[in-house]
Amino acid sequence: MAGQVFHAPLITSVQGLRLHKVYARRPEQQAILQEKYSDTIISTVVDDIINDPEIDLVVIATANAVHFSLTRQALLAGKHVVVEKPFTNTVAEADELIALAKEQNRILSVFHSARWHSDYLTVKEVLNSGELGRLVTLEIRYDRFRNYLRPNAWREDDLPGSGIFFDLGAHLIDQSLQLFGKPQSIFAYLRKMREGVGAVDDFEAILLYPNLKVSLKGSMLIKEPTPRYALYGTEGAFVKQGVDPQEVALKEGKTPRNTENWGQEPETIWGILNTTNEGPNARRIVPSEKGNYPAYYENIRDVINGTAELIVKPEQARDVIQLLVLGEQSSQEKRIIDLS
């Protein structure tokens, strides 16, 4: 899904990148490639991609269990690498890949695309405006409703890196780290709620900063929509419903190339800012920023060409893995983990 929905449409929408070869072993995958990307070579052997001298950049959009091994193999072959989040399943694996990328003088980045979500970009603007005063509480939710298990879905099996905490929680933790840096401590409560599920399908992680509590939540059993973001400060609040529209658009077959106003939210889900300011603007609707997934690959292109600094650094993705691992430990031991 990651390759079909996210990476291939985005790569082919960015000038200066060419989708050269894709690993596809199932007939239905090959049929999609032939239909949508007729100029792309279909490969059934991973080594054909990693060792292809025409390829500069290898994108790892696979099950989490092989992120480390394939990324390591690609770096050793002299390729730049983009790997899906979560970066790895352990901090030690992340550290090894970071060191190897430096040794090979190759670019290594993790696809933390939620930094370019419309809602997150809007939250950044609201915080930068200062209208909330001193922020005291931030709540972010990433909910879905699926009360059944998908057959042959590795994300729902009891495997390292499976479950929605590593999947959706990685986005929320990365956003929190970008906004506030590393927390002082973390407390997490992870659950398996659906009958027969092997992996975590409900989580709450609380990141504690000086005078700030960040609550990150996700669940597979939330039928009624909840606020995506809720920010509470000494001078007011900002509450945002709805989700960034880019993933839905990509699943519908739209791309940034052929879609007008890409990443623009409908006005019905714009957020509400309510502050202590006097006058008619004390409580008002805030137009959302446009989401911009292509910006991630535009940055990768520019870094490879030597004209930009890498935005999503592997060290930042490593910090996400650290908090995911400590969150698991916190839930198992039922205690707050001090990061110091």
Rank of each mutant, 00 (worst) to 15 (best):
P9F: 04
A24H: 00
P27S: 13
P27T: 12
Q30V: 03
I32L: 14
L33Q: 06
Q34W: 03
K36D: 03
S38R: 14
T40N: 04
I55Q: 04
L57Y: 05
V58G: 01
V58A: 07
V58M: 03
A61E: 06
A63D: 15
V66A: 08
L70R: 07
L70I: 12
R72D: 14
Q73Y: 10
K79T: 12
E84M: 06
P86T: 15
F87N: 04
E96K: 10
R106D: 08
A114K: 05
L121Y: 00
V123L: 15
V126K: 02
L127R: 12
R134C: 00
R144T: 04
F145D: 00
Y148V: 02
E156R: 13
S162N: 15
A170Y: 02
S176T: 15
L190M: 07
E195M: 12
A199R: 07
D202W: 05
F203H: 01
L207H: 01
G218N: 09
M220H: 01
L221Y: 03
P227I: 09
P245S: 02
G253I: 02
R257N: 10
N258L: 14
N258D: 13
T259G: 03
W270C: 11
T276I: 02
A282T: 03
N292Q: 11
R301C: 10
G306A: 04
L310N: 04
K313T: 14
Q329Y: 08
D338W: 05
D338K: 12
